[in-house]
Design a protein around this nucleic acid. Structure first.
Length: 391
DNA sequence: GATCCACGGGAATACACGGATG
DNA sequence: CATCCGTGTATTCCCGTGGATC
């Protein structure tokens, strides 16, 4: 139990209404249960999944769209609902060995941002499929696939697995996806989700259909912002005109729009105001690098890499002059229990996947290879807030 | 006792530069 | 002038060990 966090949560200024009512509703990494205005995309996905309602399995498919188009929002919402629907019409699988014959397939959502190894993939699928929890240690990867095969071979209808964030810079490529499913029986169907076009992925030979999610129209984005603001902020905190400006700037990218709203709200909150101003928005926009990397991706890094980043965002420029200096500074921060070398390697690895960027600095002396410093490819304010809220 | 994987540590390689060499 | 070499640093790559969990 984190007593500090509990006390902090109770702390509030007692002068008037708080601007920020609910961080979740503002968070760009939070998906609401009923995304607004996306009916056409839902219909196309349901068209694809239609065989399910006759107890059959749909073929493999690929859902694609640009950053911030709402792919994850839609697929997570849809699968959450399908899971409930599915559980309602079949008996839950209580044991991993007893064959059963449910009327509809199972539905599992797997995020490749957090599912980074073979083991974790099969573990995630199995854990979602059976009632009892699956151990994360002391069980081999092979054992997991054995159990999955037993279950699925005993199942008449199989399972549909949504695999989100395929073919990201730090994710595994399509080949790996195929390999993973090669370990499962043929009644495991996948619905891959990614940014790359179907031809770029090389998945086309395996998919029966592809579904494109188009970026948000400006008006839809305004609706999204107003909805989130009404749930997360004090009344009248965001006026329509400001929402329109955010939407115009975000250019169809819901992640960036919500991030801008988040930062602007945070600034207004710090200043003790209860309405967002143009100044808040301008500051917010200035803080968001473009292109930027998804905050969800930053916040799904392994714990110690996030710890490194959390300390990085608070360093002064002096300590950021070179990777070596930065690693040194971070490794000596209180609360950081990592060696200098490990922090350094983490920084290189984080740069490798594009979450920070290395830029060569002007060399001062003529000796040796010139150092580079790391620059953020994500806005620090929401990362700080969301990171700290989780502790 | 078994399993996975995060860390640490260091070897190997790349790069920048100035100066030597052909 | 073009190329090579030595030195110093940055960056990448690899793998054994050990912690945590079952």
């Amino acid at each position: 139990m984190d007593i500090d966090a509990r006390i902090k949560r109770r702390q509030r200024p007692d002068d008037g209404p708080r601007l920020i009512q609910n961080y979740d509703s503002l968070s760009p990494i939070f998906h609401i249960d009923e995304p607004s205005d996306r009916a056409p995309v839902f219909e196309r996905l349901l068209d694809h999944l239609d065989p399910v309602f006759n107890g059959n399995l749909p073929p493999n498919a690929y859902v694609y769209g640009e950053f911030g188009a709402g792919k994850s929002a839609i697929v997570t919402a849809l699968f959450a609902h399908l899971e409930r629907f599915s559980v309602g019409t079949r008996s839950v699988i209580h044991t991993s060995t007893r064959p059963n014959t449910p009327a509809t397939p199972g539905f599992v959502y797997v995020d490749m941002r957090t599912t980074t190894s073979e083991f974790s993939f099969y573990h995630a699928v199995l854990d979602n499929l059976v009632e009892e929890s699956v151990p994360e240690h002391g069980i081999s990867t092979h054992e997991l696939t054995e159990r999955l095969n037993t279950i699925l071979n005993g199942s008449r209808t199989g399972v549909v697995i949504a695999v989100d964030h395929v073919a990201e810079p730090d994710g595994r490529d399509s080949e790996a996806l195929i390999d993973l499913f090669a370990g499962l029986p043929s009644n495991a169907s996948w619905l891959a989700v990614g940014r790359a076009t179907p031809t770029e992925t090389g998945l086309t030979t395996y998919t029966a259909s592809t579904i494109n999610v188009e970026r948000y129209q400006p008006q839809m984005l305004v609706d999204v912002l107003m909805t989130r603001a009404s749930e997360g902020l004090a009344r009248q905190a965001l006026d329509h005109e400001l929402a329109r400006r955010i939407a115009g700037w975000a250019d169809g990218n819901a992640h960036d729009a919500l991030t801008a709203l988040f930062i602007a709200a945070d600034r207004a909150n710090q200043a003790g105001r209860t309405r967002l101003t143009e100044g808040d928005l301008n500051d917010a926009v200035a803080e968001i690098p473009r292109p930027s990397v998804s905050l969800a991706r930053v916040l799904s890094l392994p714990a110690n890499k996030q710890l490194v980043l959390r300390n990085l965002v608070d360093l002064d420029t002096e300590d950021r002059a070179s990777v070596t200096a930065t690693a040194e500074a971070i490794s000596t921060q209180p609360g950081v229990d990592l060696s200098r070398g490990t922090v350094k390697r983490f920084l290189y690895e984080i740069a490798e996947v594009g979450i920070v960027e290395r830029v060569r600095s002007e060399r001062r002396d003529g000796k040796g290879r010139p150092p580079s410093r790391v620059e953020l490819r994500f806005p620090p304010t929401p990362f700080r807030r969301l990171y700290d809220l989780r502790r």
